[in-house]
């Protein structure tokens, strides 16, 4: 169990650290700018929004924990 917690914690920390390092290298290299470029087409935008929505559905409505 602790291994799994550690892996997810490290992933979260790496996301934050890489965002901070990018911003230090270039003040314009922000997460917002990153998403501005990713969400450039309808396909990518709708796909990202569907993934976001499903996370909410998964934790609030659907079966969050498999039996």
């Amino acid at each position: 169990m602790m291994v799994s917690i550690g892996v997810f914690a490290v992933c979260g920390i790496l996301l934050v650290v890489s965002a901070l390092l990018a911003r230090r290298a270039d003040p314009d290299a922000t997460v917002g700018e990153l998403f501005d470029r990713i969400l450039v087409s309808r396909t990518t935008t709708v796909a990202v929004v569907v993934c976001w929505w499903w996370i909410g559905w998964h934790f609030l409505v659907a079966q969050t924990v498999d039996p």
Binding site: L14, D26, R37, L39, V40, R42, V50, W53
Partner: peptide, 29 residues
């Protein structure tokens, strides 16, 4: 989905090197 669908498509913008590094880092993680 209706809101972003209305956005259609945008003209792509350049990817500065720090932003590319950030993108690759996030994809890997």
């Amino acid at each position: 989905i209706a809101a972003v669908w209305a956005g259609g498509r945008r003209i792509p913008r350049p990817w500065p090197r720090p932003l590319r590094t950030l993108a690759v880092s996030w994809v890997v993680v």
